[in-house]
């Protein structure tokens, strides 16, 4: 129950942050504008469109990441070993997302290019993207400890034997 209260709190935080953000005055180029030369292309305007909203954006993104982490946490039955790895993964994910927000908040005039991308986009492509793959790796490496142990398989065989055809009640 406690995990679901946390989950509910995070969902409400996400919803409230979104509500506050979208009810703020809308800059003209909030979602970009038409490109002056190419009809089907848009331009992003200036970084000023995000002025005063970056902290809100960080809270919105961080609440979502927390939501994903708690959701993964509740899928792993209580008392399974090695949950520290999940916490470490979550910390890395938070750190990379925060680095992305910081990179974007810095000087926009002289953005360095890293591995072919402007620095903030490089953090997205080479930081956030691989960091999110970390949880897929954890799933595969901790499958026996977290997801389906030999004891689980044995217990499932017992359930099948105990309720052949299912305890359906007509459903």
């Amino acid at each position: 129950m406690k995990s679901y209260l946390i989950l509910l709190g995070l969902l409400i935080l996400t919803a409230v942050t979104l509500a506050i953000a979208i009810t703020r005055p809308l800059p003209q180029d909030a979602t970009g504008g038409p490109h002056p030369s190419h009809a089907e292309m848009k331009q992003g305007g200036t970084p000023e469109r995000h002025q005063g909203k970056l902290l809100l954006g960080w809270i919105y993104g961080a609440a979502q990441i927390s939501l994903f982490m708690v959701a993964i946490g509740i899928s792993i039955p209580q008392g399974r070993p090695g949950r520290g790895w999940l916490a470490a993964g979550a910390l890395i994910y938070f750190a990379v997302f925060s680095a992305l927000m910081l990179a974007y908040a810095q000087d926009h005039e002289s953005v360095p290019f890293i591995l072919g991308f402007p620095w903030p986009t490089a953090v997205l492509v080479f930081g956030v993207w691989p960091a999110s793959a970390l949880f897929a790796i954890l799933y595969a490496t901790h499958f026996r400890a977290w997801i389906y142990s030999a004891a689980d398989a044995k217990r499932f065989a017992e359930i099948k034997a105990q309720y052949p055809g299912g305890d359906t009640h007509g459903y």
């Binding site: 979104l18 490109h35 848009k42 992003g44 970084p47 909203k53 993104g61 974007y104 953005v111 991308f117």
Partner: peptide, 23 residues
């Protein structure tokens, strides 16, 4: 980036809230 720095940056033309909502 030379045409419009924001288009090549983290949020592209859509902007931060739109991108984080996709997230």
């Amino acid at each position: 980036h030379t045409d419009n720095a924001e288009s090549a940056s983290t949020w592209g033309t859509l902007g931060m809230l739109g991108c984080l909502s996709w997230f």
